[in-house]
């Protein structure tokens, strides 16, 4: 079957979404174009506005509309404790299951030695600079329990070793290969509250 060029472009664009293959892309495109053109317009506007309006928080690198995200600009959050996570989804998961009142630092990934993803790509110098300012008393490393997450945690603990801050790591209970985002909240809560010293 051949599609008009504009439909082809839409299919191509939809396939950029994670988990969307040719068939799902076609289903989505036909749904939007045939059954829900109003919804399609809303989707395209929302996407455009989000792209223009959402950037990264200057302090924690989480997604944010302002220069500082709501967590960083909330004065009741405890600036003495910083939790380092791989992705914005991890912030969501921890917010929902732990009652954590400190701040975050979002790496946007993990060290991947063979792919050339190093400390610069993760903003680790900025993290070190923030900790060096002196307010931070504890850094909780909550990278995923994968080998790359473990390597990242080790790198960060070495990087911050001389800072004087206490460095802790989530306790076991998060399974090997698990990703925080998908760990059930009971397990995540136990891991968070049972965190231990790295050094």
């Amino acid at each position: 079957m051949t599609h008009p060029p504009l439909v082809l472009r839409l299919l191509e664009a939809l396939r950029r979404l994670p988990g969307v293959g040719p068939k799902s892309a076609q289903r989505m495109a036909f749904h939007l174009l045939e059954r829900d053109r109003e919804g399609a317009l809303r989707l395209s506007l929302a996407l455009q506005e989000a792209l223009e309006g959402v950037g990264r928080c200057r302090r924690c690198h989480n997604l944010s509309e302002g220069e500082l995200c709501p967590i960083c600009s909330n004065e009741r959050r405890d600036g003495q404790v910083v939790c380092v996570v791989e992705s914005p989804a991890d912030v969501q998961a921890l917010e929902q299951s732990t009652g954590f009142q400190g701040r975050y630092f979002v790496l946007g990934g993990h060290l991947s030695p063979l792919d050339g993803v190093g400390p610069d790509e993760l903003g680790l110098e900025q993290l070190a600079a923030q900790v060096a300012e002196g307010e931070v008393q504890e850094v909780i490393i909550a990278t995923n329990p994968t080998v790359e997450g473990e390597a990242t945690a080790h790198y960060i603990s070495e990087l911050l070793a001389a800072s004087g801050a206490r460095i802790t790591r989530l306790a076991h209970g998060v399974p090997l290969g698990g990703e925080l985002e998908y760990v059930d909240s009971g397990t995540l809560s136990r891991a968070f509250h049972g965190r231990r010293e790295v050094q």
């Binding site: 030695p113 063979l114 080998v147 473990e150 390597a151 080790h154």
Partner: peptide, 18 residues
């Protein structure tokens, strides 16, 4: 169970093999 510095050495060995 590899941790810490040994983990980075192991990544280096994997890259060598690749």
């Amino acid at each position: 169970s590899l941790t810490g510095r040994a983990l980075f050495t192991a990544f280096y060995v994997n890259e060598l093999l690749l």
